[in-house]
């Protein structure tokens, strides 16, 4: 990768991190482009370690990291471009939400009027205006989560690293926050998120990094990752008016492993080892008087990919 390209990505080169004898992450090679990238894996997989490594809160035992061409060893440069919403639920004592952001911006060297304006904007953005001048110590879990998010956002960074940012948020705020992430990604930000909630990851991610026991198991766009899992036949749901007819015809094809009527009786669930060939065949099969309403992959999502690669260890579906 040339320097210009590395200057637009978050790059891990053969990075390992050990906490004494305990493995954090091992031999990680990643090149994360813009958009929303989700780190997915069970507890202890290494998600937070990766985030702490890219923000310089911990140092790699081996390997090199750069964020838009900047080493995490240079916080004075890095944090002009990066905002990190950590999982740490602790704050400097006695500060209000506004002071928390304002002081952070003053630490960044912003003059009073700029710090005041940016703090106000970030508070508005996370819908905390009413509680801005109350002490953080009196905030609910969801409010604390939002003020941390505001801190990560307030200096208008190009990279946002968010460790479980949806934890503790009620459903309405959760939806608003996801919409906020989407709009930030559309503005061109790099957003790296870790989450246990797979259906949310699925809904917001442009690409995923699957981690297990400190190793990167897979990375890339979900569709691409799914295609690489050859051991598991692709599942396709075909909605049609004559599912029994279609099932019997489909089952005669040698690329089809399994065909069964969908539980709602309105379609057929097909498992195939060659999806492309199956799609071509389907056009021919459909000409025999069966009205096909829709064709969609059934396991082309984070949840399925997670189960195939990592198993059914804990994350919330």
């Amino acid at each position: 990768m040339n320097g210009q390209e590395a200057g637009r990505r978050i790059v891990f080169e053969d990075v390992s991190k050990f906490y004494g004898e305990v493995l954090g992450v091992n031999r990680v090679n990643l090149s994360i482009p813009g958009g929303i990238t989700s780190l997915v894996g069970p507890n202890g997989a290494g998600k937070t370690t990766l985030m702490n490594l890219m923000t310089g809160l911990v140092r790699p035992t081996r390997g090199r990291i750069s964020v838009l061409g900047i080493s995490p060893d240079e916080p004075e440069r890095l944090f002009h471009k990066l905002g990190y919403c950590t999982q740490f639920d602790s704050f400097p004592k006695g500060l209000t939400g506004y002071q928390f952001l304002y002081s952070y911006l003053r630490l960044s060297g912003k003059p009073h009027p700029v710090a005041d304006r940016l703090a106000g904007q970030a508070i508005e953005r996370v819908n905390l205006a009413e509680a801005a001048h109350r002490r953080i110590a009196g905030y609910s879990k969801g409010m604390r989560q939002r003020i941390k998010l505001a801190q990560a956002l307030c200096h208008q960074p190009s990279v946002l690293v968010l460790d479980e940012p949806l934890n503790g948020l009620d459903p309405l705020i959760r939806a608003e926050t996801i919409a906020l992430f989407r709009s930030l990604a559309q503005e061109g930000l790099h957003i790296v998120i870790s989450s246990h909630v797979l259906h949310e990851v699925d809904a917001i991610s442009d690409q995923v990094v699957l981690l297990s026991n400190g190793y990167v198991v897979a990375e890339g766009q979900i569709h691409g990752v799914r295609e690489e899992i050859h051991e598991q036949p692709m599942q396709i749901v075909i909605r049609c008016d004559k599912p029994c007819d279609l099932a019997s015809r489909v089952f005669q094809q040698d690329c089809v492993v399994e065909a069964r009527i969908h539980p709602d009786g309105q379609g057929v669930l097909v498992k195939t080892r060659n999806a492309e060939r199956f799609y071509l065949l389907l056009n021919r099969l459909a000409q025999g008087g069966i009205n096909i309403e829709s064709v969609a992959p059934a396991d082309d999502d984070v949840l399925s990919v997670y189960e195939y690669l990592i198993g059914t260890e804990e994350p919330t579906k």
């Binding site: 944090f79 740490f88 602790s90 704050f91 952070y104 630490l107 960044s108």
Partner: peptide, 15 residues
């Protein structure tokens, strides 16, 4: 001990 040192470490500030 208070787990709040990261507040400074996350600022664009020479240590």
């Amino acid at each position: 001990v208070d787990k709040s040192l990261h507040y400074y470490f996350l600022a664009p500030l020479r240590r």
